[in-house]
């Protein structure tokens, strides 16, 4: 046994003992939650068996979690509950007496088509289902993006460059509006693909990048606060809920 292995085993022993003490004092689940929290934090040092354990457990549990949520939350009320309502009676009594809706066979069939992918011969059938999903959302997205991201942005950018308010001419707001307008224009110039960024056009694109960079820096700096809050939340869980060291 090498020295490194020995250290690993000793460390493991210590973890087991601490875990046992904590279970005795705090109960299994709180201890387990704290253990998993620490296991994930240990990734900051390096990959290690504790992180691997937490990661693999998380992957398995979460995959099943969403399967169950999808089944009880969507399949039961929206598929079975509409195909053959008496079937879901024991779970959702409110739906029991609804008329059945044969149209819901279509998604069931499409879903089964999708699963045909698992067969090597009939795999191509799954594309029909895929085409349906992609087609629906593509059509939906086309209009949605055009309206909310394109037309609406014009309407909010079309603001007066010369601002007056109750106190008369407002220099601050005027400057802000001019900067916004020029910023949007230059940003758009940057996104031109079929024109070389040269001369005046290139200058515009460069100004666009400047605005983008300031924005990225600002958003980055702004997000720090939220992330620190999350960390504080985890620390509070460890120090307070688990160890009871605060207040």
């Amino acid at each position: 046994m090498t020295r490194r292995q020995l250290a690993t085993y000793i460390f493991f022993g210590v973890v087991v003992i601490l875990f046992a003490i904590s279970v005795a004092l705090k109960g299994f689940f709180v201890t387990f939650g704290a253990f998993l929290t620490l296991a994930i934090f240990s990734f900051l040092y390096d990959d290690n068996p504790y992180y691997k354990f937490a990661e693999h457990l998380f992957v398995g549990v979460s995959a099943a979690y969403w399967m169950c949520m999808g089944f009880w939350g969507t399949m039961v009320p929206n598929l079975f509950g509409r195909l053959y309502p008496p079937m879901v009676g024991p779970v959702i009594p409110a739906l029991k007496d609804n008329p059945s809706d044969p149209f819901m066979l279509i998604p069931l069939i499409l879903g089964i088509m999708l699963l045909m992918r698992l067969s090597s011969k009939a795999g191509w059938i799954s594309r029909w289902a895929l085409a349906f999903v992609v087609g629906t959302t593509a059509g939906l997205n086309l209009v949605r993006y055009l309206r909310s991201d394109f037309i609406q942005q014009i309407s909010s950018t079309a603001m007066p460059l010369y601002v007056t308010n109750s106190a008369g001419f407002s220099l601050g707001e005027t400057i802000s509006n001019i900067v916004i307008f020029i910023g949007v224009m230059c940003g758009l110039i940057y996104f031109f693909f079929s024109k070389e960024h040269k001369g005046a056009f290139g200058a515009g694109a460069r100004a666009g990048v400047i605005v983008l960079m300031i924005t990225f820096g600002a958003s980055f700096g702004y997000t720090v606060m939220a992330r620190i809050s999350l960390l504080v939340g985890r620390m509070q869980y460890l120090l307070d809920s688990w160890l009871g060291m605060i207040g």
Binding site: N141, D149, S156, I180, F181, G187
Partner: peptide
């Protein structure tokens, strides 16, 4: 900074993304 340049750049990106998304959706269609 948050109110002015930030807004301008985000708007430019969103307009671009909107157009690109519409174009992609159209290409898919």
């Amino acid at each position: 900074i948050l109110k002015v340049p930030n807004l301008a750049a985000k708007r430019a990106i969103i307009i671009g993304v909107g157009l690109g998304a519409v174009a992609t959706a159209l290409k898919v269609m």
